[in-house]
């Protein structure tokens, strides 16, 4: 009888403790930005970026071949003027540009004039600009929404991915170390 009472006490307590521990880990990682419950893991991770060629927004645009032979890590950022989280992310991109991290921008399902206006008004954090107005190339990248950012190494392999706005914490904890690692 006493073992039964002990079990009745210990089993729910252990279950509650395990659940609490799990919630703590998940919430902590969500706060840090290393876990997004709605995020879809990209199948591109450690694979080469898909073949594409996109027209430029301001200058000549770029293609997958430019990423295959860039020789240095580059952040590829999908964005849009109609996307509030992209506007929220914009200062983080400007800060990365200021410290010399190359970012290539792809305006997703946007009007060229709106995108150009936006960059003129708020500052252009991108080293190169392209536009995917139909959003067809984005599907080849497995894009689920904007903003979405891919860290592509010097040979065109995707090494890191974030769906959702970047934060300064992510820059410090994840992007900077990875940029250093792949700048070898």
């Amino acid at each position: 009888m006493s073992t039964r009472r002990a079990l009745l006490f210990a089993v729910p307590l252990a279950a509650a403790a395990a659940a609490g521990g799990g919630f703590y880990i998940v919430l902590h990682r969500m706060q840090q930005g290393t876990f997004d419950p709605r995020g879809v893991p990209t199948v591109l991770l450690n694979k080469r970026v898909p073949g594409f060629r996109l027209p430029g927004l301001i200058d000549a645009g770029f293609a997958s071949t430019d990423l295959f032979a860039s020789g240095r890590p580059i952040l590829v950022n999908f964005w849009a003027t109609w996307c509030p989280p992209c506007i929220e992310e914009h200062p983080v991109l400007m800060a990365m540009q200021a410290e010399g991290i190359p970012i290539w921008g792809i305006a997703y399902k946007d009007k060229r004039s709106a995108a150009v206006d936006y960059l003129e008004r708020n500052g252009n954090p991108y080293a190169r600009n392209a536009i995917d107005a139909p959003g067809r190339v984005a599907i080849d990248w497995g894009l689920t929404g904007v903003p979405e950012t891919f860290l592509v190494d010097g040979d065109g392999f995707v090494r890191w991915h974030m769906s959702g706005p970047l934060t300064l914490d992510m820059v410090h904890q994840q992007i900077r170390p990875l940029m250093r690692k792949y700048t070898a």
């Binding site: 879809v40 199948v43 599907i139 990248w141 497995g142």
Partner: peptide, 14 residues
Amino acid sequence: AQVVDWVVARYGDF
């Protein structure tokens, strides 16, 4: 199957 595979190749099993 080919159509589903085409989409899965881009977005994964999810």
